[in-house]
Design a protein around this nucleic acid. Structure first.
Lengths: 133, 133
DNA sequence: AAAACTATGTTAGATTATCTTACATATAGT
DNA sequence: ACTATATGTAAGATAATCTAACATAGTTTT
């Protein structure tokens, strides 16, 4: 797990914002969580807090559902992608990972900003850039 | 105006998250708003929603306050920077100017910091002098 | 065709997060 | 010494979110 991965996993967004960003209902988002497609963090008071990764996943879920894939299928797809990610991460990226891990807190905002700008194109291939606005 | 401007001004973050991200209290954040240093958006139900720009500004406020600048001074500094931004934006060399602007954004902070540090040495009157380390 | 399952809607009651307003207070400036 | 600045804190109100339960249109399965 590299530093940037942590950043992309930083819990930042309330469900209301995620609803706007993904155009999903709260019911849908909770249902997808219930079925293990996402695992948003929680505040001390039990409110969900979503990361950029969560939002990416939700947009992907939405996309796949639009294409007729059911949740079971999406779950499988996510599993496969996760395995790929594991392989890619474990392989040879130690050095780059190390560099990435040492990002200063000051740079965090800029990274966040960047992430938002390019939030969209899921790294592995298929492209439907969700518009964040 | 590029799409990125829209993104940076997109209201996304609740005050709780901004507190964590900036290490400011809610009181401070609201006070800075009250004095016009930021203008976060609101939800339909009147909750504040902060953008990345807001967070940047808050971090800058915090930084300047740590260096002994009062809110009036910070307001002036923001005004100056805003004017510069306006000029640069109106000068229709948008593409190249944008790069230059990014550079000068980072640079300007350092210059300001230096300048303020020097000024602080002259009229030192407060018990909490800038830590010269 | 009936039964079961899937994915979502809706409602209700409870709880958290945030809001405004007001008062308190320690430092800093005059 | 007085005033202004910047922040803390408390109270009461309300918005946003939570869980749980029941409803339902489609879709599979039997």
């Amino acid at each position: 797990m590299g530093g940037s991965q942590i950043r992309r996993n930083m819990p930042l967004f309330s469900i209301g914002i995620v609803m706007q960003l993904t155009d999903l209902t709260a019911r849908q988002i909770r249902y997808y969580e219930e079925h293990g497609l996402i695992s948003p963090a929680r505040t001390e008071g039990n409110k969900r807090l979503f990361s950029l990764n969560d939002i990416d996943k939700l947009l992907e879920v939405k996309d796949l559902i639009d294409q007729g894939v059911n949740l079971a299928g999406i779950k499988q797809i996510f599993n496969v992608k996760q395995q790929q990610d594991d392989v890619l991460t474990d392989e040879d990226n130690q050095e780059a990972e190390k560099v990435r891990k040492d990002l200063s807190d000051a740079e965090l905002r800029k990274l966040l900003r960047k992430e938002l700008l390019r939030a969209g194109r899921f790294n592995r291939g298929h492209g439907n850039p969700p518009r964040l606005q």
